[in-house]
Design a protein around this nucleic acid. Structure first.
Lengths: 332, 332
DNA sequence: CTGTTAGCGCGTTCAC
DNA sequence: GTGAACGCGCTAACAG
């Protein structure tokens, strides 16, 4: 951060040293530009000697768009998003794209973040774990910048491209499984109240329970956090005479917290007197300590769809729902 | 990624609409520039109407440095690094800095990554989970770009600024604790073979055991991965007659895998016939399922040092070792 | 194939 | 306080 009084070598410097024009230098560093092999060699040599490297900022300024994708991220502690971030990173690397990372904990701050993103001339925006206001969605659209909502959908006038897991099918599968295994006093632990994902899972869960002839579930909110899930579990199991025999948590991290709380505070082994199910199938769900029944969200496929959209590799513009699978383990 | 045939509004466009010069527009968006309040108001209004936003690329091109920090990252699955990434992200956000994220799994690929980073005119580079070749370290130094090795040190001629936990004190504390609790058949599970962190922990662990009059530990390699740790644990406990009574794993993630493997495959409850200890004190270490004894690395403090270095907030240039604490839990 | 010329969008002198 | 003019480093269109 020491302010660069230092000047990096420029194409001019290289040109002077190699005895060519500055545009020749530019061509030497451009794939498939017409330049003689001999001259290119000389230029590269001069560049090496000077430690020259094309200034991507200047290049992007001309091209009007950079090879950078803006990613708005929250949820560092959730392995599902960590995995997704890794997949994106790999996928982008293969295409020569870079990620400019922005953090947003709440939807409130997202707009500023995305606004700043735009001034970086990013070539696409990926929103993980947050929603975008219609105002900014419109602004992105105007600038021709593709926006992807990852694991979120917008419900409203502005329908941004969204890639999600199959929230409804997954929640229904869990409900059906609870019903089939004779559970009757069923509870639902919600994520953020304003999360489309949590709401969709809840609605589908409720509907499937009703279809199975079961009453509506008790409802607690865990806010997608470990602490929230622990508190919610305590609330659910506070009264010994009226405990649920099954809990569906809106994601795996909460389900795991629930499992641990059940064991350590209530002496209940999940899968016996009470079933616990989650959503995501994060790697941890398969660990022997948890053996969590859950509905999978295939991260790689979801990321592939998102990347295909922003690179225009697929023609389609419609949002996509990636089907998962019910993963039965010991907890339910 | 749809190539922008679209042209974003520029300062000229705003100037024309507001009936002022382009430089007036520039001033209106520059903190503390001399411009009348009235004119600024008019310009901002025009800018809003057009959806104008200063082009940061152009600004950076002039200033010679962007408000972007390059971060080379691996280890998405390790919460320690996820936490660190989050801390960096927050800390940067408060200073108006952005993160350009690069992925590198091996040291081999780091050089290219950093090379590209440089052409983005980043104002600093943070290396997590990888080492930098001396060639590139030199190149960064020449460009006046501060480089921080996070949780890594360089051993050699080129000493980049490094911020680490107290690998030696931590490993020694674990060794002392093992000795004090009567453990004698002690094992060490290494991370990557070329990781300075793992090597420092190993050396200090060995030295402390020797000082305590104990034999050198058996050694297995877990490569900082869950699978590696599980395989290593199987190897350690394969012969029922010759099992260790304590295992020190080079990080918490491996220690947790070890705990699970001990329980699920060998029927051993960690902390009874065999102690298990880790390093990092990731949040998971405190979960009831693991209750892992470990030595903490204070992520926030480590990040604070790194940020202070790249922003030049501290005068010092010497690498820093952030002390942690021995955290005693049930596993040892 | 090559050099010359003209910008990309903005910050920054420098006169007024 | 304000506008004109210049240049950051580079690519692209144009002659040759």
């Amino acid at each position: 951060m020491t302010d660069n009084s230092f000047r990096n070598p420029t194409a001019h410097d290289v040109a002077r040293l190699a005895g060519v024009s500055q545009s020749a230098v530019s061509r030497a560093f451009t794939e498939g530009a017409s330049i003689s092999a001999e001259k290119r060699r000389r230029i590269i040599a001069a560049a090496d000697q000077l430690g020259y490297r094309p200034n991507i900022l200047a290049r992007s300024l001309i091209k009007g768009s950079s090879k950078v994708v803006g990613v708005v991220f929250g949820q560092f502690e959730n392995p599902f998003f960590a995995q997704a971030l890794e997949c994106f990173s790999d996928s982008f690397a293969r295409r020569g794209l870079r990620m400019l990372l922005f953090t947003a904990q709440t939807n409130a701050t997202v707009d500023e973040q995305v606004a700043e993103l735009l001034s970086y001339q990013v070539s696409a925006v990926i929103l993980m774990a947050v929603n975008l206001s219609s105002k900014l969605a419109a602004e992105c659209a105007r600038s021709n910048i593709p926006v992807v909502m990852f694991n979120r959908t917008t419900e409203g006038d502005h329908a941004a491209f969204a890639v999600t897991g199959d929230n409804r099918a997954g929640a229904a599968a869990i409900a059906t499984h609870f019903a089939a295994t004779g559970r009757r006093r069923i509870a639902f632990m919600a994520g953020y109240e304003d999360s489309s994902t949590s709401r969709q899972r809840e609605a589908a869960f409720l509907a499937a329970l009703v279809r199975a002839g079961l009453p509506a579930p008790r409802r607690v909110a865990g806010n997608y956090s470990r602490e929230g899930a622990i508190a919610a579990t305590r609330e659910l199991f506070a009264s010994p005479s009226d405990r649920p025999d099954a809990v569906f948590c809106a994601n795996d991290m909460m389900a795991i917290a629930t499992i641990e709380t059940l064991r350590s505070e209530f002496g209940i082994e999940p899968g016996t007197s009470c079933s616990v199910a989650g959503f995501d199938d994060i790697p941890m769900a398969g660990w022997p300590s948890f053996s969590l029944t859950t509905y999978s969200q295939p991260v790689e496929k979801m990321v592939a769809h998102a990347v295909a959209f922003i690179t225009g590799e697929d023609g389609g513009r419609a949002s996509v729902i990636v089907p998962g699978k019910l993963i039965l383990r010991d907890s339910a």
